[in-house]
Amino acid sequence: MTEYILAKYNYWIYVVLMMIGLYAMMGKRNLVKKLIGMNIFQTSIILLFVSTGVKKGGATVPILMHAGHEHGAQLIQVSDYLNPLPHVLMLTAIVVSIATTGVALATLILIYKRYHTLEEDEILAIRRESRAYKTPRILNPTD
């Protein structure tokens, strides 16, 4: 039982992190809070993928030590180096996550310019009111 917990507790903490991000995206009303939750969610998934490349038992970072030597090829043992493939893929994922965050923040600034609030329920109330009275004073494009 203790062995099972020691082998799996990392995964459980990643799931807890992911659920914190999901709760911030679902339960919070502020749009910046939702964006922070999205960042936490993305980071937990990247953490899970990076952790699949870990090898216990003396493996080091995937940079070869004897690269310049002539007999370097014979010295390479696969179990001596970590798995480089998840690192490469998650490098791409981090850069894509900053791109989505940037576009989302630009959209957030536009939303604030139009509605003067960032709370989701207030934005929905303003939209409902302007639709009910047929006076699009806030949704006016020349505003």
Partner: peptide, 17 residues
């Protein structure tokens, strides 16, 4: 990530994230 051995990912996270 540095402690897990993913140094390139840690660099990118420190600068970008």
């Amino acid at each position: 990530w540095t402690e897990m051995g993913a140094v390139d990912v840690a660099f990118t996270e420190a600068s970008v994230g």
